[in-house]
Design a binder for these strands. Structure first.
Length: 191
DNA sequence: GGTGCGATTGCA
DNA sequence: GCAATCGCACCA
């Protein structure tokens, strides 16, 4: 969906390609699908901006999703998932890797989309695997809860992605989640 | 306060 | 196939 309402004007007359809040405050599976092809943007302390086209995501949808960190209720770690969509949820996995999630939906409903892979659009970063995405974009716990409308981390429109090139599969690494493990909540670009 | 482990990655 | 490495969820 490339709705025009998702394009907002910057303070000047220049039109930005930045996704606005309403993009994220929608059903998680919808947002997950629509995140494919979008551009993940990260402004580094040195002023450089990294960009990468999102090519793979996974949705974690609600308190009943047994694969979700929110399945056991709200905790200090997963608190950002309960916020209104449009912020980041970043956690440390295996004591080594950070994982970037895009929080979705309304306040009080825990949901997020894990960014699993990006391609370089022009001069951007390629990264296959959630830990590698976070590393490539220099994202860590400091970005946990950060707005995706802020100056460090944000998303922009990309070329629309046709359904013909989108695959859906079960999520990775959630075998413990019973029937939820089989749900096709993983969206990726065919190649 | 103690214990077990994970929405992963890289190397043998 | 499996070690790395630690925050945190859970139990006492």
């Amino acid at each position: 969906m490339t709705a025009r309402r998702d394009i907002e004007a910057s303070s000047g007359d220049r039109i930005t390609r930045r996704l606005k809040r309403s993009f994220y405050v929608r059903p998680t599976l919808e947002v997950a699908r629509d995140l494919l092809g979008r551009t993940l943007c990260r402004k580094l302390p040195d002023g450089r901006t990294l960009r990468g086209r999102i090519t793979e995501v996974e949705a974690y949808d609600g308190p009943r999703d047994r694969a979700s960190h929110a399945h056991r209720g709200r905790t200090p770690r997963n608190a950002p998932m309960f916020e209104r969509g449009g912020i980041a949820y970043v956690y440390l996995i295996y004591g080594i890797h950070h994982c970037l999630n895009v929080v979705t939906g309304e306040c009080g409903y825990p949901a997020a989309v894990l960014v699993r892979a990006t391609d370089p659009p022009a001069h951007g970063a390629r990264a296959a695997g959630p830990g590698l995405v976070a590393r490539a974009f220099a994202i860590d716990r400091r970005h946990d809860g950060a707005s995706l409308s802020g100056g460090e981390l944000w998303l922009e429109h990309g070329a629309p992605v046709s359904d013909r090139v989108v695959s859906r599969t079960a999520r990775v690494g959630v075998a413990y989640a019973g029937a939820w493990a089989h749900r096709r909540y993983r969206f990726l670009m065919k190649r």
